[in-house]
Design a protein around this nucleic acid. Structure first.
Lengths: 346, 346
DNA sequence: TTGAAAGCGCTAACAT
DNA sequence: ATGTTAGCGCTTTCAA
């Protein structure tokens, strides 16, 4: 336990220059690896840097260069492993290209989200990455204006590049999977009230498949965030649904976390999955694949999504990529695991 | 799909001043809410700000003020829900106090970690938060020097404030729980080779309880990251362990994610949990509590840990808290759920 | 109550 | 090959 010594002001380029008996510019040239510096001089500078423990001040550099190498990332909810995993991948790709990530988690409410975005902009992040975008009251768009490039990953909007799977098609595929298994009463379990575009696309995909099969659609949603995400006893309403006379034989959940909640309700209610109830999710979070869960779901190509999103954003920042907003639609895959099976015969 | 229009340089305080026909200083006074500004003047400034869509440049402010309101956070692995959850909580508390978070994920290797830390320092983050700290080759310490306050949350080191549970005591409690259930062959499953202090404290706690009971200790570790975290077929070695003649009847895993991996191996191998094998974890990640898993574990007070860590760090930054490094030891709790039971009678 | 001026640490054009 | 200089956008004395 050493006491934190009184902090001394970090050394500046000027200190280095003085110690090395050179000018600031020469030191700057060495730091930036500019060509045409005498090797001897270079060494003198490096020695001085070493001696002073000098670290360049990125803040000053950013100010003079009028640009930062910081990417802002707006995350819906880090408590959802899908987003956490995506954030991790994105950080990796960004770091490999010399970019830092500044983040704000925005699950709380729209007001906080807007504050976070504004703060990111004031920090002059070079670009913005949305990992989830509610997009209801378009405050975000106004705040961002057209000052910086924006990429929506895994979500959707019409004012920036989009990198995502075709949520509608994926949801249709998931629903068709249930239909092909002979299910007739299939519920779509939506996210909470604040539904984003990507989520409503999933709902639309569900509706499309249901209508196509001539079945009756039924969309439900949690009143509050489900149990896994927050403690909540709205679980009782779930029981009513699972128990009713026209109870569903299959449920398609807007994401894996919801699917787990439903699975847990079913378990606790004594309903067998998949014998009595089939469940399919969306996202393929890591835990979904353990034997005990083995959740059927739609897998998104996370790594690819992250890589393309970062490349796209950095391309826009550098100006390598220009022109109108693009939409990268990546392939999803339907994972038929052990929470979906043929509909029970009454 | 509106094309991203050519980006115009954001308005500066100077632009605002010119439009409002005032000096930069007056505009600055309004922005900062300095006292003694004529209400009329204030309104003129605000109108100009509105008209130009002016947003203060935090980079410039930070340079002149010689301080930032950015906290650096070093995360071991965002793919582990425990860290993701902690990061989310920390972000929340920091944001509430006007601080942004810049993060680097450092699972990859030590080199990357060091690069990340250096980058954070060069960005002049006001303080550093370690959510995991390997602390082997003390490169991090050297890089940080004593330039800025450092808080270790959920991990341990002797060169900064620590906010954590007593890992040793917690591990002892977990192991005792197994001993009390009559288990004799209890394995401790450690993290990968790069074990941090907090993890070795857990191992020590295990050893203490085992020795106290006069049992034989046995410590194993994954060769690579386990399955949930990465694809890996080192699973076979796990099977050998679970199958051997002196196979363990109980396993204490260094964290919940490992516990899930072990649980999954047991499931796939046909071993019943907890009848044939008891498993206890550490962290109490959200998923652990669903009925299908119901993992016995040590719960850490995540919210409290996050809150205290942020308060402590900001206190240090502001200078409100001074003096030698402190150690906040919070209470853990032992959750006896359904993966631990009495030892099987042979 | 407002304005003028200095300067935060750095880069980059230009001069030497 | 090295040095001089003019800012980047802002805050913050100090003067008017």
């Amino acid at each position: 336990m050493t006491p934190p010594r009184s902090r001394q002001k970090p050394a500046t380029i000027h200190d280095v220059a003085r110690l090395a008996e050179l000018s600031k510019s020469t030191v700057s040239n060495v730091i930036r690896g500019a060509p045409g510096v005498n090797p001897e001089t270079k060494e003198r500078v490096e020695k001085a840097i070493q001696a002073l423990g000098y670290r360049p001040n990125v803040v000053a550099r950013q100010l003079v260069q009028q640009r930062t190498t910081v990417l802002g990332i707006v995350i819906g909810d880090l408590g959802n492993p899908f987003y956490a995993e995506m954030a991790k991948l994105i950080e990796g790709f960004a770091a490999a290209r010399g970019f830092q990530l500044m983040f704000c988690n925005t699950q709380v409410d729209e007001h906080t989200e807007l504050k976070g975005i504004r703060s990111l902009i004031e920090h002059r992040v070079a670009g913005l990455l949305f990992l989830a975008y509610a997009g209801d009251a378009d405050g975000a768009r106004l705040a961002v204006g057209d000052q910086l490039p924006v990429v929506f990953v895994t979500c959707d909007a019409d004012w920036g590049d989009v990198v995502a799977v075709d949520d509608l098609a994926a949801a249709t595929a998931a629903t068709r999977h249930l239909i092909e298994l002979g299910h007739q009463r299939i519920i779509y379990f939506a996210d909470t009230v604040r539904e984003a575009r990507a989520e409503s696309a999933r709902r639309d995909g569900y509706l499309a498949a249901i209508n196509e099969a001539g079945l009756a659609p039924r969309v439900l949603r949690w009143h509050e965030r489900p149990r896994l995400v927050r403690n909540d006893d709205g679980i009782r309403s779930m029981e009513a649904i699972l128990a009713g006379p026209d109870r569903p034989t299959a449920i398609f959940a807007a994401n894996d976390l919801h699917a787990m909640d439903i699975l847990d309700c079913a378990d606790q209610y004594g309903l067998r999955v998949p014998e009595d109830l089939s469940i399919i999710g969306f996202d393929d979070i890591a835990i979904s694949r353990i034997a005990r869960i083995s959740l059927s779901t739609i897998a998104q190509p996370k790594e690819q999504l992250a890589r393309i999103a970062v490349e796209l954003l950095i391309g826009r920042i550098r100006g390598d990529i220009q022109g109108r907003a693009m939409r990268h639609s990546l392939d999803f895959s339907l994972l038929k695991r052990r929470t979906t099976a043929r509909a029970p015969h009454p």
